[in-house]
Design a protein around this nucleic acid. Structure first.
Lengths: 179, 179
DNA sequence: GCAAATTAATGATTTATTCAAG
DNA sequence: CTTGAATAAATCATTAATTTGC
């Protein structure tokens, strides 16, 4: 019963030999305050703290709970990388096929879609990074945007509003059946 | 049970004078089928549809009733945020304020550690774009890091200390020298 | 049974971040 | 260092559920 339950770790004897393999059990679990401080530091511009800074941070944060210097180091590494990854992901991947070819355009993102849409001519299915299962849609189509301010407020602040009132629709085909 | 589909903007001047500076339009009231399809798409992994997708979804869903693209956009925004919110509330169990033994014991040898770490993973922080998991909710990884970094509990005897942000910790002054 | 009053859900806006380009 | 792009968080506002008194 005291086996290593997945996701729940038995009290692995104080000194966790958190080596390289069994990171499950001896992993640092930051407290709220620790995360708060780290995030504040990150937000303040700190990205790659020096060793001295890491030590100071770690010492300070140890007040809130168990922490080691390496945790601080890793935290910044991961946070930096993941923020970046997140940005890239939403900017490029979320946009399915549209392009990576003309990445110089960089506007493959749907947001600038209104402005540069007419330029899309050749989209290649780049690196099989197919994120959405619902690509039963025909992304290849270049639909016309009818930016019709149908609302009371004409200045729309959200990035993309397309008013498409096509009413002649066959029964729904949105299933993520195939690609 | 009132089957009247919500119209567009009720442009009737002075009709619904809610006085406040809010919207003056009646808001979208999704039909059951619309919600069902949107939820299915969400559960399939779609989180931030591109403009193309939004338009197609909107077009498809208009078969079931009045809808605009912006409604689809808003729906995904809200649904994503609220699912995350829900999950976050559930996982407010993080604070194990554990005063472990010799917290920063490894600092003395941390320099070597950091050198190795730098060598290992400094610039090579995974550039891999993870494919979208078809059946999992891609929650914010940061939150996972923050709240689920470790399921390991030493003991459940420690009292929670959740909002002790007013400890007597001196204000961190870490960014002093090398910023 | 039925509406007025109240509460819960959720659609729509605003605000505060992030990274990256210039 | 400043600005652009694009959210995601926080908030506002309205609709639906429900409670309640009659």
């Amino acid at each position: 019963m005291d086996e290593r339950l997945p996701g729940f770790c038995i009290k692995g004897s104080g000194n966790n030999n958190n080596g390289s393999s069994g990171t499950k059990c001896g992993r640092w679990n930051p407290t709220t305050e620790q995360v708060r401080v780290l995030t504040e530091l990150f937000r303040s511009g700190l990205r790659t703290p020096s060793t001295d800074q890491i030590q100071k941070i770690s010492t300070q944060l140890s007040f809130y709970g168990k922490i080691e210097s390496k945790n601080v180091f890793y935290w910044f590494q991961n946070h930096k990388a993941r923020e970046r990854q997140k940005r890239r992901k939403v900017s490029i991947d979320e946009n399915d096929f549209i392009s990576r070819d003309n990445i110089n355009n960089k506007i493959s993102s749907s947001k600038r879609f209104f402005e540069v849409m007419e330029y899309q001519s050749d989209q290649r299915v780049m690196e099989t990074l197919q994120l959405f299962p619902l690509n039963s849609f025909d992304e290849n189509e270049q639909e016309k945007l009818r930016f019709h301010a149908n609302e009371c407020r004409e200045d729309s602040l959200f990035p993309y509003i397309i008013n498409n009132s096509e009413m002649d629709l066959p029964p729904l085909d949105l299933r993520l059946s195939s690609v």
